[in-house]
Design a binder for these strands. Structure first.
Ligand SMILES: [Mn+2]
Ligand SMILES: [Mn+2]
Ligand SMILES: [Mn+2]
Ligand SMILES: [Mn+2]
Lengths: 244, 244
DNA sequence: TTCTAAAATTAGGATTGTTGAATTTTATTG
DNA sequence: CAATAAAATTCAACAATCCTAATTTTAGAA
């Protein structure tokens, strides 16, 4: 065993520099991010392969294999070597707990500080590992028990229940379809600014005018504005169909 | 070398679970806390000995010796084995940067969420390592460029300049002295609740009625309330003398 | 000055998260 | 069915924190 709590006697030093974090048996950042990555791949109906997870995390496959061994030992996921892995109920719970934190933090920063939807992801990505459950619940209450984050993603509740992903990617619509923007990919600030420049936000109502068969361009109308979007972007914006 | 940035190609996954933190060359939590501990001891005019730092951080002396070697190699402090260490300008800068973060976060949580002064230290202690400089400055602006944190400690400015510690401990006052509470020790929630139960807050005006020479009890008057306080507590509350 | 207790360092381990290189397994293609 | 490329694992190393148990150094007391 290693790194016991080892509570030191307090020494009555003056305000502002004392330590003694209660970070004892807390799950590590990397663990939590790996679980989130697996969850995200599962949710996106992609197989959470070693390679896919490594790509999401930005580490080598060997690192994932190594970490997965620890995670499996802790009962957070199951691993059949060479045949992928899968979250256990416990692992999914932890992943959803992180997603809840991430999304509440994003919304909190936007609501309090007036940041833009393109300015909060990176900070939330780090802060999600740093806040206490107590603080998260205070934020939740302060925000009025919100159900969606600033990018339209559902906020898991404190029991780990989460609404199904809403809508379908714009790219999956056909000419003539109409819908309301329900969720956008949130991790790339540039992309979010691009959407803003097109006037797209959560709740925007749009209609597919045409789809170019080869280049993969989608022509849309939003109110009286006409915009076009490449397939790549059209895959990253989901709309709830309002008309088939 | 280890853990290169290793930027992965983006894969256009859907909102809410992508990673790729920009945590590349960032200083670690332990490093930052050690520097803060040394700074705090220096500020309190205690020698930042291996033992003192170990006690503050809640680790063994051997761990401090080891970490100090790294810190010295990075030019954050100077170490003369067996004769203590001292922050370099760079080390002090980093320590003050952390203190700024810590104090702004505490104030931010209190102002936005309405938390009590006893509920913010532990979260700030962890969050201080997690927020971006950009976010810190947004918080600073949002709070109206505050000069003091909720416990009366001065907030270092973004250049690392910090006001001198204000006041003296109540324990240092003599009978008849009057003063205004200017700063209280912040890391022990119990202690802060104890102060609250006595009605003491930053700005409270009080007068020393008597000091018991042996037991070390200080008898105070605050408005028309009379309170007594043991030496230990009286060492942890500072007042700005208003009358000698 | 000599002794001794406290403080500090060194030595030797453990654990975690990494990497790159070598190897093994799987799946696909011919 | 064999060849082969991609995916996955294993292995050896390394860095950073931590620990416990020696050992060394310092400083204060006798
Ligand atoms: Mn996000
Ligand atoms: Mn994260
Ligand atoms: Mn504090
Ligand atoms: Mn800290």
């Amino acid at each position: 065993m290693n790194a016991g709590p080892n509570v030191p006697e307090r020494e009555a030093p003056m305000a502002g520099w004392e330590q003694n974090h209660e970070t004892a048996g807390m799950p590590q950042t990397s663990i939590e991010d790996l679980l989130k990555a697996v969850y995200g791949l599962e949710a996106a109906k992609k197989r959470p392969s070693t390679k896919a997870v490594a790509d999401v995390l930005g580490v080598q496959m060997a690192s994932v294999t190594g970490m997965v061994k620890n995670l499996a030992a802790e009962g957070l996921l199951e691993h059949v070597p060479y045949h992928g892995f899968e979250l256990t109920a416990k692992g999914r719970e932890l992943a959803l707990r992180m997603l809840r934190r991430h999304r509440l933090i994003e919304l909190f920063l936007i609501q309090t500080l007036g940041l833009g939807w393109d300015e909060v992801h990176a900070d939330a990505e780090v802060m999600e590992h740093a806040v206490s459950d107590q603080l998260v619940e205070r934020i939740y209450a302060y925000l009025g028990k919100p159900e969606f984050d600033p990018h339209g993603s559902p906020i898991p509740d404190s029991d780990g229940a989460v609404a199904a992903r809403s809508g379908v990617p714009i790219a999956h619509l056909a000419a003539g379809d109409e819908g309301i923007v329900s969720e956008v990919e949130d991790e790339d600030p540039e992309f979010l600014r691009y959407l803003s420049s097109l006037g797209i936000k959560i709740g925007s109502s749009l209609r597919v005018m045409a789809k170019d068969p080869y280049g993969g361009l989608v022509r849309l109308r939003m109110g009286r504005r006409r915009i076009s979007m490449g397939t790549e972007a059209a895959e990253r914006v989901r709309v709830a169909r309002s008309h088939v």
